[in-house]
Amino acid sequence: MIAIVTGSDSGIGRAAAAVLAGRGYDVGVTWHEDEAGARGTADEVRAAGRRAEVRRLDLSRADGAAAVIDELAGALGGLDAFVANAGTGASTPFLETDLGTWRHVLEVDLTGAFVCCQAAARRMVAAGTPGRIVAVTSVHEHIPLPGSSAYCAAKGGLGLLVKTMALELAEHGITVNAVAPGEIATPMTGNEDVDPHAIERPAIPAGRPGDAREVGELIAHLLAPASRYTTGASFVIDGGLTLMAAVQDA
């Protein structure tokens, strides 16, 4: 089995690559800024006895992304599963968000994901592969976050793109789902290489941030043959964070 995981140089992407390698996948690894991190991920994959290929992927120039996906799939010899994980964000109040920031976040998080998923799906369809596609969105696919209008718009759009892809690709035996994490202990949240069980988060029912590997396990489950009847869904993994709206309104 062969999978490509974008943005797998750290965080959720790296954890997903490691979990997939442990389940028998050869893995295509991509990076944007952290080549050393990507090489480290590849080493983890190889330590599990699987093959790894590494390529740089710059989604701020999304028109070149399809070629990278095709190159990785070609080097690995096919494509059974694709994880659109690479992304970015911006913390700027709506009234202060400039057009350049808006365009950059949507180019990376939405347009880039579209181009990569399309390239992966086209290869699966051409090969007759009943493939699996998972897009990593965010709880902010579903609920807003003040100061993150571009990020929320991109993740919300990606969530609906997932559903549209699921509808159109079902006839080819391809499933498409979203995984929507809450706070996860990753570089993006400032908690790299920290035991999430040692961090207190009273506002989260689980009392802590999530572990990237927990998200990786969910991704792996959705890519497995047992999930062939699951498509067009968004799986929130947030320790109960989104449930707190009910508490706040009580």
Rank of each mutant, 00 (worst) to 15 (best):
T30A: 12
R51V: 01
R55T: 05
T30L: 12
A36Y: 00
R46D: 04
D58T: 09
G37P: 05
A42D: 10
D43T: 13
R39Q: 15
E33I: 01
S60W: 07
S60R: 15
D34W: 02
L57K: 05
A48F: 06
A42P: 07
V45N: 07
R50N: 09
E35D: 07
D43F: 00
R39D: 13
A42C: 11
R55V: 02
R61T: 14
A47T: 12
D58E: 15
H32D: 03
V45K: 11
V45E: 08
W31P: 08
S60Q: 13
E53R: 13
R46Q: 14
R46I: 00
A52V: 11
L59H: 11
L59F: 10
A36W: 00
E33P: 00
H32S: 12
T41F: 03
D58R: 08
T41I: 06
T30N: 12
A47G: 13
R39C: 01
E53H: 07
D58N: 14
A42E: 10
G37E: 03
D43E: 15
A47F: 07
A47S: 14
A47W: 08
A42W: 09
A42F: 06
R61F: 03
L59M: 15
A52C: 11
D43G: 06
D43W: 00
A42H: 06
E35R: 15
R55N: 02
E35I: 01
H32R: 14
R50D: 04
L59Y: 04
S60A: 15
R61Q: 14
R61W: 09
A47N: 09
R56I: 08
D43H: 07
E44I: 07
E33S: 14
R56W: 12
R50P: 03
E44L: 15
R39K: 13
R61H: 15
V45C: 10
E33M: 06
G37K: 05
V54N: 06
G49S: 10
D34R: 10
E53K: 03
G40Y: 03
G40C: 04
D43N: 01
A36V: 10
W31A: 05
R51E: 14
L57W: 09
V54R: 11
V54I: 14
V45H: 11
T30M: 09
T41Y: 02
G40M: 02
R51Y: 00
E44K: 02
R51W: 01
V54F: 10
R51D: 13
D43I: 02
T30F: 06
G49H: 09
